[in-house]
């Protein structure tokens, strides 16, 4: 690496966030988990929460959260992260508590736990990464898999008559009284990444101000299991995925008025 650049341009305007451990990730090339991790670490740094945070990792590609985010982390059974986070938050209300979950984890096996955590207004923050497949186990059909999408367990494409429809969690959770904030973001363009960061900040603020349950759903990519190049995977997010899973803020509580 050349040092010439550093000599001429002395102000570092972009570097790895402090809360992101300086290691190479295990994620596949182009996987957006890395972007979501970075946004999470940047937001922890922004609010100065690194030493007051307890994270809860899910089962799936995101389980190695504890290798990357420099905070205390508990590992939850598949889908149970919001329940584990509930136990942590009730025991330590002064700590910042978040879960980081994939779509198989949150939207299939963990629907009960996330719905009831939201409905209780559990003062936790959920980062939900939706890539329409079970990535770690080899690209099986998820509850979020798009109609017609071929996966290793829907080799003829998802058929609504057999498998039902892709589940829209951000909308569903926004209907619950205990939810303070629910948004869906994507990270496939620089502008989307900036918006995603704003959403995560908002979700953090909800917990800091004790407003209740907050969730940010990320439309993510899985180039490996989709059988696409990373740039084509991003185009899929911008196209059919964003059409079915519209981006936006579905609920934002303005003040802590629990009815």
């Amino acid at each position: 690496m050349t040092d010439r650049g550093k000599d001429r341009f002395t102000k570092k305007v972009y570097a790895r966030p402090k809360s992101l451990v300086d290691v190479k990730s295990h994620f596949c090339p182009g996987c957006h988990h890395g972007i979501a991790h970075r946004i999470l670490a940047e937001t922890i740094d922004h609010f100065g929460l690194r030493e007051q945070t307890v994270g809860v990792a899910c089962v799936g590609c995101a389980v190695f959260l504890y290798d990357y985010i420099d905070v205390d982390v508990a590992e939850a059974p598949h889908g149970r992260a919001p329940a584990v986070a509930t136990g942590v938050k009730r025991a330590q209300p002064d700590k910042f508590v978040f879960t980081y979950q994939g779509d198989g984890d949150l939207a299939a096996i963990g629907t009960s736990e996330v719905i009831h955590a939201a409905n209780r207004g559990e003062n936790i923050t959920v980062l939900f990464v939706n890539n329409t497949t079970y990535g770690m186990t080899g690209g099986q059909m998820a509850p979020t898999t798009m109609l017609g999408q071929k996966t290793s367990t829907s080799p003829y494409g998802r058929d609504f008559r057999k498998d039902g429809y892709p589940i829209k969690m951000a909308e569903l959770l926004a209907t619950l009284e205990g939810t303070a904030y629910s948004a869906r973001v994507a990270t496939s363009t620089p502008a989307q990444i900036r918006k995603a960061k704003e959403a995560v900040k908002k979700a953090f603020e909800m917990q800091i101000k004790e407003m209740g349950f907050s969730i940010v759903e990320f439309l993510s990519t899985c180039p490996t299991n989709w059988g696409m190049k990373p740039l084509d995977a991003q185009k899929r997010v911008l196209g059919e995925m964003s059409e079915y899973f519209p981006l936006g803020v579905y609920k934002e509580r303005k003040q802590a008025d629990f009815l």
Partner: peptide, 8 residues
Amino acid sequence: PDVCIEVW
């Protein structure tokens, strides 16, 4: 996604 770019 791999946070391997630094900017000055």
